Computed example of a mutant assay.
Amino acid sequence: MILHCMKKSTWEEVKNKNIWGKELIEKEGFIHCSTIEYFWRVAPNFKGIKDEMVLLCIDEENLISKVCYEDGDNCGRFYPHIYGVINNSSVIKVLPFLRSNDGKFIKNIELAHIEDK
């Protein structure tokens, strides 16, 4: 399972579509995702976003698009990038993006059994 973070309002717009993400691909070339183990490293990128956010839990084996694990920053960690649209049938769970009072990410209890790396 991989994670994709997005504004809840955006999720509300796409959740009933069969596929989505074309705009993200046109902008970035792929759709950014993270493993659960590395998400705590990615989460600070969303600190400045005041909107309510969600974490899409995606079963990559059910994706219709190719997933490549890449180390774009040469940091020694490989993150999943989706090279194509996301089919909503691959989204197996939607979790709230939890934050502390000071805006820091709080790991969801559903993901707590997976150790951070």
Rank of each mutant, 00 (worst) to 15 (best):
S100N: 14
S90V: 06
N74F: 13
V54Q: 00
F78E: 15
Y38Q: 14
I86P: 02
I106M: 09
R41A: 15
D51R: 06
V67K: 02
K47N: 09
I31N: 11
P44K: 02
V91W: 02
E70K: 15
E60G: 06
E61T: 12
Y83E: 04
F78G: 01
V42A: 11
S65G: 05
P44S: 11
F97L: 00
D73Y: 08
V85H: 06
P80Y: 04
I36W: 09
E52M: 00
A43G: 08
S34G: 05
C33F: 01
F105W: 14
V85L: 08
Y69C: 04
R99H: 06
F97C: 01
E110K: 06
V67D: 08
D71Q: 07
N45P: 00
F46S: 05
L111M: 09
I86N: 03
N101E: 15
P80R: 05
V94S: 01
N74T: 11
K104P: 03
E61F: 13
F78T: 13
L55E: 09
L55N: 06
E60P: 03
K50N: 14
C68D: 15
V42N: 13
N101A: 11
N87T: 01
P80I: 01
I92R: 02
S90K: 00
D51V: 09
N62R: 15
F97H: 05
H113Y: 13
V91P: 06
P80W: 04
G84A: 04
L111A: 07
E70D: 12
Y79V: 03
L98N: 11
I86F: 02
D102I: 04
T35E: 10
E52I: 00
C68T: 10
E61D: 14
E37V: 00
R99Q: 12
V91C: 10
D102R: 08
P44H: 07
F39G: 07
L111T: 12
V42M: 12
H113A: 12
A43H: 04
L111C: 09
W40R: 06
G72Q: 10
F78M: 05
E60A: 05
I109Y: 09
D102T: 10
K93T: 00
F97T: 07
L63I: 03
K104I: 10
